[in-house]
Write a protein that binds this DNA or RNA. Structure first.
Lengths: 353, 353
DNA sequence: GTGAAAGCGCTAACAT
DNA sequence: ATGTTAGCGCTTTCAC
């Protein structure tokens, strides 16, 4: 239990009266060690407070047991959940995660990736906004022979591994919920349109409208943003929508933070949700449950996204010849009451304003 | 520009026609290399696509250039901001951050810390909830000779380094803002009272009350929580406060998420903010700016907290004999309009309900 | 089941 | 200004 700073494997070997190899076998849990010898070594390890030097092990074994985590923005609920899931899964498998730069721009990425490969991370998890530019980075890493998996972005016929949410389906579900309640004029506040997820949620919205025989009207689609600026973008987006077309009866906000910002704008405009206007959010982030009113939203298991991504990485580390894997997780509608019949139908029934 | 997987320093040396040592000097930017030689080496590095092996460097130089980041909860704004600041500062100094377990319980900490020291992190940044139990962990690390700094927790006469926000002062400012508007009956929704920050904000609240000649009444102090469950705890806390004492005219919520949850409870109760009840939050998290109404809050520069913590770590890595440093950052009130005169004073002036 | 030898890829200390 | 010699602390390979 003493300080272990300088205790090395050969001191343990001497203490236990065995060779260095035998100690190595014991700390690596090899089976070909006599029970009695093993015990003797373990005692010596405890007595000396020996801690194997992971750096030396890494050099000799060529296994760093480290994963690179290249994330975009810790201020977005999706990403923090992914990181949480990824880290848990990594630890479960005796891996640690090295943080790539969360704030660096795309230009700086090659530099950081290089630093990551210099440290011999055995795999890299990209949890960034996504977008075609990112693919070059992935490919560069992949050429290097380092397994990589991308999260929050995918496309048909891709040659890389990915774990993502089925955002098209999610966008459709959100929109269909509003359609089922009889809404005919449904606006949309999107995420940043440079991201695949916003594009996909928008496609889902569009598909749902068209299936219902409604036409897509870009007039009532405004662009917002993710991360910390989401609230403000939703607030401003809603204000604009109210100016552009006061006849809208429902809004699909592509994340809950934008939805909450939009709720604030509506309240300031003297409109009630859901009596005057229905709203569906996306993400099931914590703010959705206690907003006024609580937001009907789309839930996605983002922690699982992170865990699955790490599992893919570990499989590919084990067997480099494995083909890329793509996983697409489905979403689920969480009903919370920010949706009701449109104004006119309530009125027809003799309801509120 | 070719694949660099197996290019080693001696291949570069051969290519450049120099010794391994000279290559080492060049890649480490030593000054005692002739300009012409340096150029020749650099050319060889590029030609071969050489990437120094950080693990081998670490073993030989006994410098991992890695910091351990032991955080508690990525779902709390304070912690994500600290991590952001810490990571940026680490990269700026050519360090990387290794993620300690974000979700592990206190019991598991020793195990994870051990894994971190086995990897020879040169310093450890603790960004956890804080509390006396954590100190044992810090001390264990410190005994090991590894510099450690704790964030979000400190106490007088401590023997460890820390960077924290002056929560007592922050709590006082929040409360004084309400007092200045003439509020006499101010409730408080606290963070988890096992944390130092909640205790300190509560002390500040209490001090402000007492300075104003008001007595502290535990009846109108309820405990909430941080992280994702904040919203709900603020919502429930507010409901309870309304039951316990309908005469309160103001609330200090110890973080903005609880404040937002409380706003929802008030709205459901048919009470308006600030006309019927004033509210001050804490953290200046993104939700505060676009809540209804926008929340007056206490701003703290949390990104800077992370950066300063890393700076301390780096100083102590450079010179292990340095005494521990304690930094306490001040807060700032952000006025947003969720505060006004108490009901009775408005009434006296012929105002609202 | 255990040990000896050889290196992993680099840097430190001392040469020259 | 450059090269030589020894390791850093471990694992791997191959003996026995």
């Amino acid at each position: 239990m003493s300080v272990s700073k300088n205790v090395t494997i050969d001191q343990v070997a001497r203490e236990a009266g065995v060779s260095i190899q035998t100690v190595s076998r014991v700390i690596n849990n090899r089976y070909d060690v006599a029970a009695e010898t093993r015990q003797r070594v373990q005692d010596a390890v405890i007595r000396l407070g020996y801690q194997p030097n992971a750096i030396a092990r890494g050099l000799a074994s060529r296994r760093s047991r480290t994963l690179g985590l290249v994330t975009h923005d810790f201020n977005d609920h999706f990403f923090t959940q992914v990181v949480t899931g990824a880290e848990e899964e990594a630890h479960r498998n005796n891996y640690f995660c090295m943080l790539g730069s969360s704030t660096c721009s795309l230009d700086e990425m090659p530099k950081y990736l290089r630093l990551l490969t210099e440290r011999h991370v055995e795999g890299v998890l990209f949890a960034r906004e996504g977008g075609p530019d990112e693919l070059d980075q992935i490919n560069r890493i992949a050429q290097d022979g380092t397994p990589a998996v991308i999260v929050g972005f995918h496309r048909d016929g891709q040659t890389f591994s990915s774990v993502d949410i089925n955002n098209i389906d999610g966008g459709r579900r959100a929109t269909e919920c509003l359609l089922q309640y009889g809404h005919m004029r449904i606006a949309c506040i999107t995420g940043p349109l440079r991201t695949q997820s916003a594009q996909d949620r928008l496609s889902g919205y569009r598909l749902a409208l068209e299936s219902a025989g409604l036409s897509y009207d870009p007039e009532i689609v405004v662009e917002g943003s993710y991360g910390n600026s989401s609230f403000g973008s939703g607030y401003r987006g809603m204000k604009r929508l109210l100016e552009v077309d006061p006849s809208i009866t429902a809004v699909f906000a592509q994340n809950d933070r934008m939805g909450v910002g939009a709720l604030t704008a509506l309240q300031q405009a003297g409109l009630r949700v859901p009596e005057d206007l229905s709203m569906v959010g996306y993400d099931d982030s914590p703010e959705a449950e206690y907003s006024a009113p609580p937001l009907t939203t789309i839930r996605q298991d983002t922690v699982r996204v992170g865990a699955l991504a790490v599992q893919i990485l570990l499989r590919h580390i084990e067997d480099n010849s494995l083909p890329p894997e793509q996983i697409l997780l489905n979403t689920e509608l969480v009903w919370r009451g920010s949706v009701s019949l449109p104004r006119d139908q309530i009125a027809r029934k003799g309801g509120a304003t």
